[in-house]
Design a protein around this nucleic acid. Structure first.
Lengths: 201, 201
DNA sequence: ACTTGAACATGACCGTTGTCATGGGTCGGC
DNA sequence: GCCGACCCATGACAACGGTCATGTTCAAGT
């Protein structure tokens, strides 16, 4: 019997997934969490062997939760589930020690198959995702551009970014302009967003 | 036995909800759709009595689907389900003829209760949502502001908006400035977004 | 009839933003 | 050593965006 913990902030989805998995003879949902920061405690109480983590959660998201569990509960297998298939999520998931990555678009059968494979020590990659990830070119942004773009994502004015980096405003604008060009966007906000989606920052 | 149709673009969520509902003795999921434009056909084939519509769907979203079903299948009860509880969704759902509105944060028991109540001819409103909806002030935007804001949402330059309305660029900017003030935002894009979320456009 | 207030339209003003041309560093290959 | 390629930094410049002050129209209230 495979003991599973489900972490998803949407109560309905959480319950529905539990119902789905409990239909399987060899799978049992032993705990549910609405946020990442409840997972560690719930793991100790329930003794789950596989953890299903949704990326989007209010306080502690799935990716950071995975990082923490990797240290505190290294024996537990982690399966990341997400609504949006951004290349950045995919990369970060495995860097955070996850054993599998699944999109919520996948058929239910794939989820149960993934849980079994992960439980037996294997890795799970949505083949469609893997293809897309390969063709995603590696980061074309320079160090400075990444740094500035990350700050620009906060929405603050250029002058503030410049001040915090001890640069002139013109320099910051220039780096942003380069980043905008490289991301095929037309302003800093879109540039920051797509860079994040591509896993470049 | 209550026959239910589920429309949700995420395969996993769809299957999980079906599993959850099929656990109930008096409820049976007879059809699943990945998009709103499949619903009418699936309804004819399955004879479902209650339709579960997710708001977010790629081609034909849940709200528009509800509008169409209201005419083509007036006897079918509609339950709108959504991830994000924007006041606009709530209002539009009932204008589109839905009998119920539920957020995916609700506990699973509330979903089955809602299906039973809707099936027996009642209306279902998440009490928490109803409160929030009442306190949402009615549309503070003027006719012109709404019109311009809707165009601005497309992201086009001011000059283009001005041309399509036969106005000067300055006038358009002025209306946008007013709308920005009324929405407590700091640029046209945010203003358009929150106006849409509030159901003002 | 007069006043008041709201919605609309317009142009001026100024800060912000993105682009460009330029120059100074560093690194690797010829 | 020399040269080209690359990254970084900077200021000039033009375009865009939001705010403001002003003027007009129209409907409601007095």
């Amino acid at each position: 019997m495979i003991k599973v913990l489900i972490a998803d902030d949407q109560h309905l989805v959480r319950g529905a997934l539990a119902a789905l998995l409990n239909l399987e003879d060899d799978i049992q949902v032993v705990a549910e969490c609405a946020d990442g920061d409840e997972v560690a405690q719930a793991l100790d109480d329930s003794g789950a062997q596989v953890v299903l983590l949704d990326v989007q959660m209010p306080r502690l998201d799935g990716l950071r939760t995975a990082q923490l569990l990797r240290d505190s509960h290294p024996e537990v297998k982690i399966l990341i589930v997400t609504t949006f298939d951004r290349p950045g999520y995919f990369r970060q998931a495995f860097e955070a020690g996850a054993s599998g990555f699944l999109v919520k678009d996948s058929p239910p059968a794939e989820l149960v198959a993934a849980i079994r494979r992960v439980h037996s020590g294997g890795k799970v990659v949505d083949p469609q995702r893997a293809m897309l990830s390969v063709e995603t070119r590696s980061n074309p942004l320079t160090e400075r551009e990444r740094e500035i773009l990350a700050l620009a994502a906060g929405g603050g004015p250029v002058s503030q970014i410049a001040a915090s980096l001890h640069l002139s405003a013109g320099t910051v604008r220039n780096h942003l302009s380069n980043a905008i060009g490289k991301t095929n966007t037309s302003n800093r906000i879109e540039a920051a967003r797509t860079a994040r989606e591509m896993g470049w920052i």
